[in-house]
């Protein structure tokens, strides 16, 4: 058992970015007009939140479809 095989860091990435993404998406949907105006009219929390959720999903799917040790990378 070597340190590289104890746990799959892809799940950790998916978990952290997924949580960040979920928090930002909810914030983005409820941001006040003042907060949107601060970001020059862009709903930045919403967009970054959705982007993070997409990256988290991609990592989770990769870890699920190619479990560690057989991913060949």
């Amino acid at each position: 058992m070597t340190p590289g095989k104890t746990f799959d860091v892809r799940w950790l990435i998916a978990g952290l970015l997924g949580l960040y993404g979920a928090v930002l998406t909810v914030l983005g949907l409820t941001d006040s007009a003042a907060e949107v105006a601060k970001a020059d009219g862009i709903r930045i929390n919403l967009w970054i939140g959705l982007g993070l959720l997409a990256v988290a999903t991609a990592f989770a799917a990769w870890a699920k479809l190619a479990p560690q040790g057989r991913d060949g990378s």
Binding site: V23, V36, A39, D40, I44, N45
Partner: peptide
Amino acid sequence: RFLPNGVLGI
């Protein structure tokens, strides 16, 4: 200047 709470924390 630009970041609202949320992305600011990140």
